[in-house]
Amino acid sequence: MENKTVIKKQSKAPYKKLGSRLVEARNQSLMWLLLLPMVFTLILCHWNPIFRGMITSLFHTKGFRMVEFVGLNNFKDVISDTLFLKTLWNTVLYVFWSLLLGVIPPLALAIVLNEVVHFKQGFKIITYLPAIAPALAASLIWMNIFSPSPGGLLNVALKAMGLPISQWLLNEHLTIPLIVVSMTWKGYGVTMLLYLSALQSISQELYEASAIDGAGVWRRLFTVTIPHLGPTMLLFVVNQIIGVFQTFDQPLVMTGGGPNNASTTLGLTSYNLAFSYMQVDRSMALGTVSFIILLVATLFYFKMKKRMED
Protein backbone atom coordinates (compact mmCIF):
# COMPACT_ATOMS: atom_id res chain seq x y z
CA MET A 1 0.00 0.00 0.00
CA GLU A 2 2.72 2.39 1.02
CA ASN A 3 4.53 2.18 -2.28
CA LYS A 4 1.47 3.14 -4.27
CA THR A 5 0.88 6.35 -2.35
CA VAL A 6 4.43 7.47 -2.91
CA ILE A 7 4.25 6.98 -6.63
CA LYS A 8 0.92 8.71 -6.76
CA LYS A 9 2.28 11.71 -4.94
CA GLN A 10 5.02 11.98 -7.49
CA SER A 11 2.78 11.74 -10.48
CA LYS A 12 0.09 14.00 -9.10
CA ALA A 13 2.42 16.65 -7.76
CA PRO A 14 1.11 20.08 -8.72
CA TYR A 15 3.31 20.96 -11.69
CA LYS A 16 2.66 24.50 -12.77
CA LYS A 17 5.13 25.09 -15.54
CA LEU A 18 4.31 24.23 -19.08
CA GLY A 19 7.60 22.38 -19.47
CA SER A 20 6.90 19.97 -16.69
CA ARG A 21 3.39 19.48 -18.01
CA LEU A 22 4.85 18.44 -21.31
CA VAL A 23 7.20 16.08 -19.52
CA GLU A 24 4.22 14.68 -17.65
CA ALA A 25 2.25 14.19 -20.86
CA ARG A 26 5.24 12.54 -22.48
CA ASN A 27 5.64 10.23 -19.51
CA GLN A 28 1.99 9.31 -19.58
CA SER A 29 2.03 8.47 -23.24
CA LEU A 30 5.28 6.50 -22.85
CA MET A 31 3.68 4.45 -20.13
CA TRP A 32 0.63 3.79 -22.24
CA LEU A 33 2.95 2.81 -25.04
CA LEU A 34 4.15 -0.04 -22.84
CA LEU A 35 0.55 -1.12 -22.36
CA LEU A 36 -0.39 -0.67 -25.99
CA PRO A 37 0.37 -4.18 -27.33
CA MET A 38 -1.53 -5.71 -24.46
CA VAL A 39 -4.49 -3.38 -24.88
CA PHE A 40 -4.51 -4.06 -28.60
CA THR A 41 -4.70 -7.81 -28.12
CA LEU A 42 -7.24 -7.32 -25.37
CA ILE A 43 -9.46 -5.54 -27.85
CA LEU A 44 -8.79 -7.97 -30.65
CA CYS A 45 -8.96 -11.28 -28.81
CA HIS A 46 -11.38 -10.54 -25.99
CA TRP A 47 -13.62 -7.57 -26.56
CA ASN A 48 -14.08 -8.06 -30.26
CA PRO A 49 -15.56 -11.56 -29.93
CA ILE A 50 -17.36 -10.79 -26.68
CA PHE A 51 -19.05 -7.63 -27.92
CA ARG A 52 -20.10 -9.44 -31.02
CA GLY A 53 -21.62 -12.13 -28.85
CA MET A 54 -23.45 -9.71 -26.65
CA ILE A 55 -24.87 -7.86 -29.62
CA THR A 56 -25.81 -11.19 -31.17
CA SER A 57 -27.85 -12.08 -28.11
CA LEU A 58 -30.32 -9.34 -29.04
CA PHE A 59 -31.00 -10.82 -32.46
CA HIS A 60 -32.43 -13.93 -33.96
CA THR A 61 -29.55 -15.66 -35.68
CA LYS A 62 -28.75 -18.10 -38.42
CA GLY A 63 -25.34 -19.37 -37.50
CA PHE A 64 -23.59 -16.16 -36.48
CA ARG A 65 -25.49 -14.00 -38.90
CA MET A 66 -27.99 -11.69 -37.26
CA VAL A 67 -31.31 -12.03 -39.01
CA GLU A 68 -33.86 -10.09 -37.00
CA PHE A 69 -33.78 -7.82 -33.96
CA VAL A 70 -35.75 -9.47 -31.17
CA GLY A 71 -34.81 -7.31 -28.15
CA LEU A 72 -34.63 -9.28 -24.94
CA ASN A 73 -36.53 -12.27 -26.29
CA ASN A 74 -33.54 -14.61 -26.12
CA PHE A 75 -32.96 -13.62 -22.52
CA LYS A 76 -36.59 -14.32 -21.72
CA ASP A 77 -36.20 -17.71 -23.37
CA VAL A 78 -33.13 -18.83 -21.45
CA ILE A 79 -34.30 -17.53 -18.07
CA SER A 80 -37.75 -19.05 -18.41
CA ASP A 81 -36.15 -22.40 -19.25
CA THR A 82 -37.52 -24.89 -16.76
CA LEU A 83 -34.00 -26.10 -16.00
CA PHE A 84 -32.41 -22.67 -15.59
CA LEU A 85 -32.65 -22.46 -11.80
CA LYS A 86 -31.43 -26.01 -11.33
CA THR A 87 -28.48 -25.37 -13.64
CA LEU A 88 -27.63 -22.15 -11.81
CA TRP A 89 -27.74 -23.92 -8.46
CA ASN A 90 -25.53 -26.72 -9.84
CA THR A 91 -23.03 -24.12 -10.98
CA VAL A 92 -22.98 -22.58 -7.51
CA LEU A 93 -22.35 -26.04 -6.06
CA TYR A 94 -19.43 -26.53 -8.46
CA VAL A 95 -17.97 -23.22 -7.29
CA PHE A 96 -18.46 -24.15 -3.64
CA TRP A 97 -16.75 -27.52 -3.96
CA SER A 98 -13.95 -26.26 -6.12
CA LEU A 99 -13.15 -23.54 -3.60
CA LEU A 100 -13.28 -26.02 -0.75
CA LEU A 101 -11.00 -28.52 -2.49
CA GLY A 102 -9.01 -26.24 -4.73
CA VAL A 103 -7.79 -23.45 -2.46
CA ILE A 104 -6.67 -24.79 0.91
CA PRO A 105 -4.97 -28.12 0.03
CA PRO A 106 -2.64 -26.60 -2.59
CA LEU A 107 -1.83 -23.81 -0.14
CA ALA A 108 -0.86 -26.31 2.56
CA LEU A 109 1.16 -28.26 0.02
CA ALA A 110 3.01 -25.16 -1.18
CA ILE A 111 3.87 -24.00 2.34
CA VAL A 112 5.11 -27.44 3.36
CA LEU A 113 7.05 -27.85 0.12
CA ASN A 114 8.69 -24.51 0.74
CA GLU A 115 9.85 -25.57 4.18
CA VAL A 116 11.20 -28.97 3.34
CA VAL A 117 14.89 -29.34 2.53
CA HIS A 118 15.07 -33.05 1.69
CA PHE A 119 14.27 -34.24 -1.87
CA LYS A 120 12.76 -30.85 -2.53
CA GLN A 121 13.15 -31.06 -6.30
CA GLY A 122 11.79 -34.60 -6.44
CA PHE A 123 8.72 -33.76 -4.37
CA LYS A 124 8.08 -30.73 -6.51
CA ILE A 125 8.24 -32.58 -9.81
CA ILE A 126 6.11 -35.48 -8.66
CA THR A 127 3.39 -33.37 -7.12
CA TYR A 128 3.23 -31.31 -10.30
CA LEU A 129 2.93 -34.38 -12.57
CA PRO A 130 -0.89 -34.47 -12.77
CA ALA A 131 -0.85 -30.98 -14.23
CA ILE A 132 1.23 -32.17 -17.19
CA ALA A 133 -0.23 -35.67 -17.52
CA PRO A 134 -1.92 -36.21 -20.90
CA ALA A 135 -5.64 -35.41 -20.92
CA LEU A 136 -6.28 -38.88 -22.29
CA ALA A 137 -4.61 -40.40 -19.24
CA ALA A 138 -6.54 -38.21 -16.83
CA SER A 139 -9.88 -39.20 -18.32
CA LEU A 140 -8.97 -42.90 -18.28
CA ILE A 141 -7.85 -42.68 -14.67
CA TRP A 142 -10.97 -41.01 -13.38
CA MET A 143 -13.35 -43.09 -15.42
CA ASN A 144 -11.81 -46.20 -13.87
CA ILE A 145 -11.66 -44.82 -10.36
CA PHE A 146 -15.31 -43.79 -10.40
CA SER A 147 -16.56 -46.77 -12.38
CA PRO A 148 -19.83 -48.02 -10.84
CA SER A 149 -19.05 -51.64 -11.73
CA PRO A 150 -17.65 -53.94 -9.04
CA GLY A 151 -14.29 -53.69 -10.84
CA GLY A 152 -14.07 -49.91 -10.42
CA LEU A 153 -10.95 -48.97 -8.47
CA LEU A 154 -12.83 -47.24 -5.63
CA ASN A 155 -15.33 -50.08 -5.46
CA VAL A 156 -12.53 -52.61 -5.20
CA ALA A 157 -11.18 -50.60 -2.29
CA LEU A 158 -14.61 -50.43 -0.63
CA LYS A 159 -15.07 -54.16 -1.04
CA ALA A 160 -11.67 -54.82 0.48
CA MET A 161 -12.78 -52.85 3.51
CA GLY A 162 -16.01 -54.82 3.67
CA LEU A 163 -18.22 -51.88 2.70
CA PRO A 164 -21.05 -51.95 0.16
CA ILE A 165 -20.05 -50.66 -3.28
CA SER A 166 -21.23 -47.28 -4.48
CA GLN A 167 -22.60 -45.84 -7.71
CA TRP A 168 -20.25 -42.83 -7.56
CA LEU A 169 -20.97 -40.54 -10.49
CA LEU A 170 -24.39 -42.10 -10.95
CA ASN A 171 -25.42 -40.85 -7.52
CA GLU A 172 -26.87 -37.40 -8.07
CA HIS A 173 -25.65 -36.18 -4.68
CA LEU A 174 -22.07 -37.26 -5.29
CA THR A 175 -21.67 -36.43 -8.93
CA ILE A 176 -20.70 -32.75 -8.59
CA PRO A 177 -18.15 -33.20 -5.77
CA LEU A 178 -16.59 -36.15 -7.63
CA ILE A 179 -16.27 -34.21 -10.87
CA VAL A 180 -14.67 -31.41 -8.85
CA VAL A 181 -12.24 -33.91 -7.31
CA SER A 182 -11.07 -34.92 -10.77
CA MET A 183 -10.82 -31.28 -11.85
CA THR A 184 -8.82 -30.46 -8.73
CA TRP A 185 -6.44 -33.35 -9.21
CA LYS A 186 -5.59 -32.04 -12.67
CA GLY A 187 -5.49 -28.41 -11.58
CA TYR A 188 -3.92 -28.19 -8.15
CA GLY A 189 -0.37 -28.24 -9.50
CA VAL A 190 -0.90 -24.87 -11.14
CA THR A 191 -2.29 -23.38 -7.93
CA MET A 192 0.57 -24.82 -5.93
CA LEU A 193 3.08 -23.27 -8.28
CA LEU A 194 1.43 -19.86 -7.92
CA TYR A 195 1.65 -20.04 -4.14
CA LEU A 196 5.24 -21.24 -4.33
CA SER A 197 6.35 -18.32 -6.42
CA ALA A 198 4.50 -15.93 -4.13
CA LEU A 199 6.19 -17.49 -1.12
CA GLN A 200 9.53 -16.65 -2.68
CA SER A 201 8.88 -12.95 -2.46
CA ILE A 202 8.45 -12.98 1.32
CA SER A 203 11.46 -11.23 2.73
CA GLN A 204 13.33 -13.24 5.33
CA GLU A 205 13.63 -10.05 7.38
CA LEU A 206 9.90 -10.13 8.04
CA TYR A 207 10.21 -13.56 9.60
CA GLU A 208 13.22 -12.50 11.60
CA ALA A 209 11.52 -9.38 12.89
CA SER A 210 8.50 -11.40 13.84
CA ALA A 211 10.61 -14.01 15.57
CA ILE A 212 12.43 -11.34 17.55
CA ASP A 213 9.04 -10.08 18.72
CA GLY A 214 8.60 -13.53 20.18
CA ALA A 215 6.14 -14.88 17.63
CA GLY A 216 5.91 -18.67 17.51
CA VAL A 217 5.74 -20.74 14.37
CA TRP A 218 1.96 -20.62 14.07
CA ARG A 219 1.79 -16.90 14.69
CA ARG A 220 4.43 -16.31 12.06
CA LEU A 221 2.44 -18.43 9.66
CA PHE A 222 -0.72 -16.42 10.23
CA THR A 223 0.78 -12.96 10.56
CA VAL A 224 3.48 -13.11 7.88
CA THR A 225 3.02 -15.98 5.42
CA ILE A 226 -0.74 -16.08 4.89
CA PRO A 227 -1.24 -12.28 4.68
CA HIS A 228 1.54 -12.10 2.13
CA LEU A 229 -0.16 -14.76 0.03
CA GLY A 230 -3.45 -12.87 0.30
CA PRO A 231 -3.39 -11.09 -3.07
CA THR A 232 -2.38 -14.28 -4.89
CA MET A 233 -5.12 -16.21 -3.13
CA LEU A 234 -7.66 -13.54 -3.97
CA LEU A 235 -6.64 -13.51 -7.61
CA PHE A 236 -6.76 -17.27 -7.72
CA VAL A 237 -10.18 -17.44 -6.04
CA VAL A 238 -11.58 -14.88 -8.47
CA ASN A 239 -10.10 -16.79 -11.38
CA GLN A 240 -11.40 -20.08 -10.02
CA ILE A 241 -14.96 -18.78 -9.58
CA ILE A 242 -14.95 -17.32 -13.07
CA GLY A 243 -13.44 -20.45 -14.57
CA VAL A 244 -15.84 -22.80 -12.84
CA PHE A 245 -18.78 -20.65 -13.88
CA GLN A 246 -17.88 -21.32 -17.48
CA THR A 247 -16.80 -24.93 -17.12
CA PHE A 248 -18.31 -27.44 -19.49
CA ASP A 249 -15.77 -30.00 -20.67
CA GLN A 250 -15.42 -32.12 -17.54
CA PRO A 251 -19.17 -32.66 -17.01
CA LEU A 252 -19.51 -33.13 -20.77
CA VAL A 253 -16.94 -35.92 -20.81
CA MET A 254 -17.66 -37.55 -17.46
CA THR A 255 -21.45 -37.47 -17.15
CA GLY A 256 -22.85 -35.55 -20.11
CA GLY A 257 -24.64 -33.41 -17.51
CA GLY A 258 -26.47 -36.38 -15.99
CA PRO A 259 -27.83 -38.18 -14.10
CA ASN A 260 -31.10 -36.38 -14.73
CA ASN A 261 -29.29 -33.04 -15.18
CA ALA A 262 -27.69 -33.28 -11.74
CA SER A 263 -24.32 -32.13 -13.06
CA THR A 264 -25.34 -29.71 -15.81
CA THR A 265 -23.69 -26.29 -15.59
CA LEU A 266 -24.47 -22.95 -17.15
CA GLY A 267 -21.39 -23.41 -19.30
CA LEU A 268 -22.50 -26.84 -20.50
CA THR A 269 -25.99 -25.59 -21.33
CA SER A 270 -24.48 -22.69 -23.23
CA TYR A 271 -22.17 -25.07 -25.08
CA ASN A 272 -25.02 -27.39 -26.00
CA LEU A 273 -27.21 -24.55 -27.19
CA ALA A 274 -24.48 -23.28 -29.48
CA PHE A 275 -22.79 -26.40 -30.78
CA SER A 276 -25.33 -29.22 -30.45
CA TYR A 277 -28.48 -27.26 -31.27
CA MET A 278 -26.80 -24.45 -33.25
CA GLN A 279 -28.79 -21.74 -31.49
CA VAL A 280 -26.10 -19.11 -31.17
CA ASP A 281 -28.48 -16.35 -30.08
CA ARG A 282 -29.70 -18.18 -26.99
CA SER A 283 -26.27 -19.46 -26.13
CA MET A 284 -24.94 -15.89 -26.17
CA ALA A 285 -27.88 -14.72 -24.09
CA LEU A 286 -27.16 -17.37 -21.48
CA GLY A 287 -23.47 -16.40 -21.47
CA THR A 288 -24.43 -12.79 -20.91
CA VAL A 289 -26.75 -13.78 -18.07
CA SER A 290 -23.95 -15.63 -16.30
CA PHE A 291 -21.69 -12.61 -16.82
CA ILE A 292 -24.26 -10.38 -15.17
CA ILE A 293 -24.56 -12.78 -12.24
CA LEU A 294 -20.79 -12.73 -11.75
CA LEU A 295 -20.71 -8.96 -12.09
CA VAL A 296 -23.40 -8.48 -9.46
CA ALA A 297 -21.58 -10.91 -7.18
CA THR A 298 -18.31 -8.95 -7.47
CA LEU A 299 -20.00 -5.58 -6.99
CA PHE A 300 -21.65 -6.98 -3.88
CA TYR A 301 -18.29 -8.29 -2.71
CA PHE A 302 -16.56 -4.94 -3.13
CA LYS A 303 -19.38 -3.17 -1.31
CA MET A 304 -19.15 -5.60 1.59
CA LYS A 305 -15.40 -5.20 1.67
CA LYS A 306 -15.71 -1.43 1.79
CA ARG A 307 -18.29 -1.55 4.56
CA MET A 308 -16.09 -3.85 6.59
CA GLU A 309 -13.07 -1.62 6.09
CA ASP A 310 -15.06 1.44 7.19
Binding site: V39, N48, G63, R65
Partner: peptide, 25 residues
Protein backbone atom coordinates in the same frame (compact mmCIF):
# COMPACT_ATOMS: atom_id res chain seq x y z
CA UNK B 1 -11.41 13.18 -18.26
CA UNK B 2 -8.46 11.37 -19.68
CA UNK B 3 -9.84 8.06 -18.48
CA UNK B 4 -13.07 8.77 -20.27
CA UNK B 5 -11.15 9.66 -23.42
CA UNK B 6 -9.01 6.53 -23.27
CA UNK B 7 -12.04 4.41 -22.60
CA UNK B 8 -14.04 5.84 -25.45
CA UNK B 9 -11.07 5.36 -27.75
CA UNK B 10 -10.85 1.72 -26.76
CA UNK B 11 -14.57 1.21 -27.18
CA UNK B 12 -14.54 2.88 -30.55
CA UNK B 13 -11.69 0.65 -31.69
CA UNK B 14 -13.50 -2.44 -30.47
CA UNK B 15 -16.66 -1.42 -32.27
CA UNK B 16 -14.80 -0.70 -35.49
CA UNK B 17 -13.26 -4.16 -35.31
CA UNK B 18 -16.60 -5.72 -34.48
CA UNK B 19 -18.31 -3.97 -37.33
CA UNK B 20 -15.71 -4.85 -39.89
CA UNK B 21 -15.75 -8.59 -39.54
CA UNK B 22 -18.12 -9.69 -42.22
CA UNK B 23 -19.59 -13.13 -42.22
CA UNK B 24 -18.70 -15.26 -45.14
CA UNK B 25 -20.02 -18.72 -45.52
Amino acid sequence: KKTVKVLSLILALALVLTGCVGTKV
